[in-house]
């Protein structure tokens, strides 16, 4: 074969492999979604949302788990977002390229990808052992620690995107710096920051490991934040590993709920981001 022929064959091979790789990636996505939908749909009924987790052999739902997940996710977001926003503000507006800011950025990115089970371990030592009981507060704190790096990153990126002219116009009108940031820059970057919060929510909605030894689990309906609280991921963990068919069905139902919620949040966040890109 001529050199040119060899080169063309080579090219064809590698490009075919590229197509195949993409095909495999997409196939995995669809396989997983298909498995979730096929096994989760039988569990979908009204009772899934209002009945509590049953003992094996009885009918039930995931009501208490859904409630627990929603509450802990909400509290984690409410606690983590201000912390993340303020830190991101510092990095974007005040820190610049200083040593402290660079260090914080670096550490933040490390925390972003740190194993979430380590966070759970840390919060266990901090909030479970000294108080001698598991609690939904501990679970919320663990999730909040995971929210913070995500929000820091997106807040800093979004604030940096705000054009300097906007800031300068505000300063020219005599606004003090804090008003410039809060009233002008935040408003301009609001959509982007919201995207960041939505991504953070999507991330913690599916986290299991940090809740394993902080909020534990609860088979009954409980609104007591000071005690173990049911949550979807740990319930799925327990039910999927069990041999009971009705529990496994509930596990698939919960898995489908979580995945669809997270995928929806991701798509919405992306849509919001691109919409804000077109309008800004």
């Amino acid at each position: 074969m001529t050199l040119y022929g060899r080169r063309r064959a080579n090219n064809a091979l590698y490009l075919a492999l590229s197509w195949m790789a993409t095909g495999i990636g997409l196939a995995i996505l669809f396989l997983i979604l298909w498995t979730l939908v096929r096994n989760g749909i039988p569990a979908l009924r009204f009772g899934l949302f209002v009945e509590n987790t049953p003992p094996p052999g009885s009918r039930g739902g995931l009501g208490n788990a859904i409630y627990g997940s929603v509450v802990m996710t909400a509290i984690a977001t409410l606690v983590g977002t201000p912390v993340g926003v303020l830190t991101g503000t510092y990095l974007a507006e005040f820190g610049g390229a200083s040593r402290v800011a660079s260090a914080v950025r670096f550490i933040n990115d490390v925390l972003l990808s740190a194993p979430s089970i380590i966070i759970g371990l840390f919060v266990y030592g901090l909030l479970v052992v000294p108080l001698h009981h598991f609690s939904a507060w501990a679970g919320s704190v663990a999730l909040a620690i995971i929210v913070v790096p995500v929000v820091v990153r997106t807040t800093e990126d979004m604030l940096r995107l705000v054009p300097a002219t906007l800031r300068e116009a505000a300063v020219a009108l005599g606004a003090p710096q804090w008003k410039v940031i809060v009233l002008v820059t935040y408003r301009a970057a609001l959509q982007g920051m919201l995207t960041g919060v939505m991504l953070a929510v999507a991330r913690i909605a599916g986290e299991t490991a940090p809740l394993l030894f902080t909020s534990l689990n609860n088979q009954f309906w409980s609104v007591n934040m000071n005690a173990p609280m049911a949550n979807l991921p740990v319930v799925i963990f327990q039910f999927a590993l069990s041999p009971y068919a009705d529990w496994q069905e509930l596990a698939w139902g919960g898995a489908m709920l979580i995945t669809l919620t997270i995928l929806l949040l991701n798509i919405l966040a992306r849509a919001l981001a691109s919409w804000s890109n077109h309008t800004s």
């Binding site: 995995i28 996505l29 999507a202 997270i262």
Partner: peptide
Amino acid sequence: LLAAIPSIIYGIW
């Protein structure tokens, strides 16, 4: 979206 799927889903799958 593959990245967004929670790890517990990968586990049970």
